[in-house]
């Protein structure tokens, strides 16, 4: 299985997002670098709106991710409820 990743800036906006991703993807690995994190996961990674909203205490539109997103890899699919990254092989 290949690795997908998502990289985010580290700031107050992203702390609950990073926490949610790590909670929802127990197989993911968190790599911390200056001013950013890169989250690697074998095969597939899911970002869930509900989990972020729980931590944030307000409604969250997944497209807000664009503001602090640094990079990603994998085939992407986004709906109102979740964003997934995956490789087919």
């Amino acid at each position: 299985m290949s690795t997908v990743f998502i990289a985010l800036q580290t700031n107050d906006d992203t702390r609950p997002i990073i926490e949610s991703i790590m909670a929802d993807n127990p197989h993911a690995r968190l790599n911390e670098a200056p001013a950013m994190v890169k989250i690697d996961a074998e095969g597939k990674l899911t970002v869930k709106r509900e989990s972020i909203e729980e931590r944030l205490g307000r409604e969250f539109d997944l497209q807000e991710l664009h503001i602090n997103l640094i990079s990603l890899s994998g085939n992407l699919d986004e709906t109102d409820d979740e964003l997934t990254l995956s490789w087919n092989s």
Partner: peptide, 8 residues
């Protein structure tokens, strides 16, 4: 990072 946020 602002440029890279578009890069994704």
């Amino acid at each position: 990072f602002s440029a890279q946020s578009d890069e994704a």
